[in-house]
């Protein structure tokens, strides 16, 4: 469980990026932060040194922890460029275990297993990142984040640089991983469709790290807190009225748009 308690963050330049933010991210659930650019999402995700307030991980105040060791306990997926270009796929995945002192041979062997986990062929192991497609690179990024088997997974617009079809695939894949591994996941996006596709809990931001609404996708869709949220989720636009659709024999709930096209999946197995 991650708790933000009255967090504020003022950058040296004077920008107040986050102002008195409090939230609980439940364990083993995916919480998605969604909001327009500059609303303070990344700042919150990186909140290792807040200006004011406390961040607790499983009740422990992180301000007392060594930031380097803390980062090694947390899986972090960045945008496509986050892989180390001079290291092979398998060595990229093995980065954090190697930093933690796992012998090279063991770390590489585990890395191969992780390729399976994220749905990549093992034959890609000896390639360099620039020999992979954007979607494959992103899967490697996820594998790297999972390599030290962290309890917490942070993802900052990880699928922002891939095309919509691959993006949808990756979202489905992430949902599968989330079901299988049950990480406490904090996912940042500016795409409300992506948020609804992935989240157990959605947090919609105004600028300045101010929460507009927190809730499950169903709650937010059913009851937008105000006009801002309604506009943001597109519920007020006639061209896309989202609704939920249950399928027989499937625990997942489908979100379907006004034209009957699936827009995402809600909470399978929950």
């Amino acid at each position: 469980m991650i708790e933000f308690q009255n967090i504020s963050k003022r950058f040296p330049g004077g920008t107040l990026a986050v102002d008195d933010f409090s939230l609980v991210l439940p364990s083993h659930k995916a919480t998605v932060f969604v909001g327009s650019s500059g609303s303070g999402k990344t700042t919150l995700l990186r909140m290792i040194d807040p200006t004011a307030g406390r961040v607790l991980i499983d009740g422990e105040d992180i301000s007392g922890l060594n930031p380097v060791l803390l980062r090694r306990r947390i899986g972090y997926v960045l945008q496509a460029t986050g892989l180390l270009p001079h290291r092979r796929v398998v060595d990229n995945i093995a980065t954090v275990p190697r930093l933690n002192g796992v012998p090279k041979r063991v770390a590489r062997r585990d890395a191969l297993t992780l390729l399976d986990t994220v749905g990549l062929d093992r034959s890609l192991a000896e390639r360099y990142p620039d020999q992979l497609s954007g979607g494959q690179q992103q899967r490697v990024g996820v594998a790297r984040a999972l390599a030290s088997d962290p309890d917490i997974l942070l993802m900052d617009e990880p699928f922002g640089a891939v095309d919509p079809i691959v993006r949808a695939e990756l979202q489905v894949e992430l949902n599968r991983l989330q079901r299988e591994l049950g990480k406490t996941t904090m996912f940042v996006t500016h795409d409300i469709d992506e948020a609804f596709a992935i989240a157990d809990q959605v947090v919609i931001f105004r600028t300045g790290g101010v929460i507009a609404q927190v809730g499950t996708p169903a709650e937010i869709l059913a009851n937008p807190a105000d006009d801002f949220v309604a506009t943001f989720i597109g519920a007020d636009r006639g061209k896309r009225t989202l609704h939920l659709q249950h399928r027989e024999g499937d625990s997942a709930t489908l979100i379907v748009d006004g034209d009957g096209r699936p827009a995402g999946i809600l909470g399978a197995d929950r």
Partner: peptide, 15 residues
């Protein structure tokens, strides 16, 4: 060196 690559190293817990 690309600052995003450097950031990635830090985020992985490199000193």
């Amino acid at each position: 060196v690309d600052s995003q690559t450097v950031d990635a190293g830090r985020a992985s817990g490199m000193t």
